[in-house]
């Protein structure tokens, strides 16, 4: 579904990403973890076209999209959320999702009524009760769910989630895990960046670990957990060269 191949991103003299290769497949959650500043968000920006890579390429369904504009990539059904929230703050939760449905109706030939779709999504992410509140007045955790709902509105095949669980309490996190598993079961490819490693380990089929812009480990949750480099990166110990 998605493949980002040997991606470099250079800011000045430092590499935010260096030869990073990450793939995400249909019908599964792929975890992407790593310490702060490892390059996770930069990778999302490269995939969605908000950041041009210095080197490397991005393909979606086998098609090279490296030089396509963000909105054209989105039309290939790639949706995302943002680590630093990018909600439409003065609109209500429902309007946030509704406007996304309406934008999709512009480029997607569909006869779906955006209002019906928006209400379905509100139910699905559990925001029905606060649907008429302006998002600016919501706690961060709920606003993250608004972003998730908004991303779902374009009926993505590939969904990039940048720390959707931060700001959620433990029962809400459980609900989120459940929702993501269901979405994957429906066939969606999900790339999940999340600090809650327990959540990632539980729902991901495959996990990539980034550190200093490099992929230092890749495998099943079990393999990644036992990897010495990963433990070193997370515990701050010296990484063997």
């Amino acid at each position: 579904m998605l493949s980002a191949e040997t991606v470099d991103v250079k800011f000045g003299v430092t590499y935010a990403l260096s030869e990073a290769t990450v793939e995400a497949h249909e019908a599964q959650v792929t975890g992407l973890i790593g310490p702060n500043g490892a390059g996770k968000t930069t990778l999302f920006n490269v995939i969605t076209g908000l950041q041009a890579p210095t080197r490397g390429r991005v393909t979606i369904d086998g098609e090279d999209v490296t030089n396509l504009k963000p909105h054209i990539r989105a039309r290939k059904r790639v949706a995302r959320t943002f680590q630093r929230l990018e909600v439409f703050g003065s609109l209500t939760a429902r309007e946030n999702i509704l406007v996304a449905c309406e934008i999709r109706n512009q480029w997607d030939s569909t006869s779906e009524d955006p209002r019906t779709v928006a209400d379905e999504i509100l139910d699905r992410v559990g925001l029905r009760e606060v649907g008429n509140q302006p998002v600016d007045a919501m706690p961060t955790g709920l606003a993250r769910l608004v972003e998730l709902g908004r991303a779902l509105a374009i009926r993505p095949k590939l969904l990039l989630l940048d720390e959707p669980g931060s700001g959620l309490d433990s029962s809400e996190t459980l609900g989120l895990g459940q929702l993501l598993t269901e979405l994957a079961e429906d066939g969606m490819a999900i790339l999940l960046v999340e600090h809650d490693v327990e959540l990632v380990m539980r729902i991901s089929k495959e996990i990539y670990v980034l550190d200093f812009g490099r992929v230092i480990a890749h495998g099943t949750p079990g393999e990644v957990k036992d990897n010495a480099d990963v433990q070193a990166a997370y515990l701050g110990a010296e990484v063997p060269a």
Binding site: T48, L50, P70, A74, A79, F88
Partner: peptide, 11 residues
Amino acid sequence: ESPAACATLGL
């Protein structure tokens, strides 16, 4: 309010 988010929705 967020041009970047709009673009990632296909606008």
